[in-house]
């Protein structure tokens, strides 16, 4: 079976600081992967390298068989990789519906024509339906900068899915959200994403969420992968418990 995403031997250093060392990750189509690790372990660096925000110092990234290692973000996005951000990256002064409209317009080959109106009734309907799938349709006409954090996080993912990516990377989808809301947000997210049959890789600190949603877990420590496999095995691994779960939460795994 050929991997959808295949990252091999990725290294990244910022001067003397090594953010990634010899990272190998293969992702098969249809997987839901949880990425864990303490702060600074290299999780976001990995996401940033795959999506072209950072260029690896060495190593290769192949997506659907094609080498995408040094492509800029927009070229990678056009090939079918989407991402969300730890701090939601939305258009603050535009409404939630307008945020989706921008995404739809950019994704549509004819959308960037200088003459086609931005807010045609059919596209607005499509945009509202997208928000509906993520359970935030009620916030459609509010400016994004005024939305609660949980809604902004969902909006961030919603606009990333407009292009129907084959692989979606979610960087801490539940960070900054209250403990009570975390599961609700993750549940909405995963339902919306499963409907679109997208392969998901999410970075997460909450081991309960990882245990519940991930079909496979990858643990990072000090810039490299220290464990990779089924959740029970990885979450039980002695190294993972010492370096990841212990350091991150100071309590035993659920």
């Amino acid at each position: 079976m050929t991997a959808l995403l295949s990252a091999a031997g990725l290294n990244k250093s910022f001067g003397a600081v090594v953010a990634a060392r010899d990272v190998h990750v293969d992702v098969a189509a249809g997987e839901t992967i949880g990425v864990i690790g303490a702060n600074g372990a290299g999780k976001t660096t990995f996401v940033n390298m795959v999506t072209g925000y950072l260029k690896p110092t060495s190593g290769t990234i192949r997506f659907a068989g094609e080498d995408v290692t040094r492509l800029p973000p927009r070229a990678i996005v056009r090939r079918g990789i989407g991402r969300s951000f730890q701090i939601p990256q939305v258009f603050g002064t535009m409404t939630a519906v307008e945020n989706v409209l921008v995404a739809l317009g950019v994704a549509d080959a004819r959308g960037l024509s200088p003459w086609r109106p931005f807010a045609r009734p059919d596209v607005v309907g499509h945009a509202r339906a997208t928000l509906e799938r993520f359970g935030i349709a009620a916030h459609g006409d509010s400016e994004a900068r005024l939305l609660p954090q949980g809604v902004r996080k969902l909006l961030d993912v919603a606009i990333a899915t407009v292009r129907r990516p084959r692989l979606l990377l979610l960087d801490e989808p539940t960070s900054g959200i209250s403990a009570e809301e975390k599961f609700a947000v993750m549940e909405t997210l995963m339902q919306a994403l499963r409907a679109g049959q997208v392969t998901v890789l999410f970075v997460e600190h909450d081991m309960q969420i990882v245990g519940r949603y991930a079909g496979r877990v990858i643990a990072f420590y000090d810039g490299t992968v220290i464990a990779d496999g089924p959740p029970d095995r990885v979450l039980d691994d002695a190294d993972v418990r010492r370096h990841v779960i212990g350091e991150a939460h100071g309590r035993a795994r659920p």
Binding site: R74, S113, R116, R163
Partner: peptide, 27 residues
């Protein structure tokens, strides 16, 4: 007419958040 199109509205999007514009696939 141009300002009403997606190309035109992209101006506001760029002013708000260039990173997201790139990650939607536009230059």
């Amino acid at each position: 007419v141009y300002l009403r199109s997606t190309m035109g509205r992209l101006a506001t999007a760029i002013r708000d958040n260039e990173i997201r514009v790139e990650y939607l696939g536009a230059s």
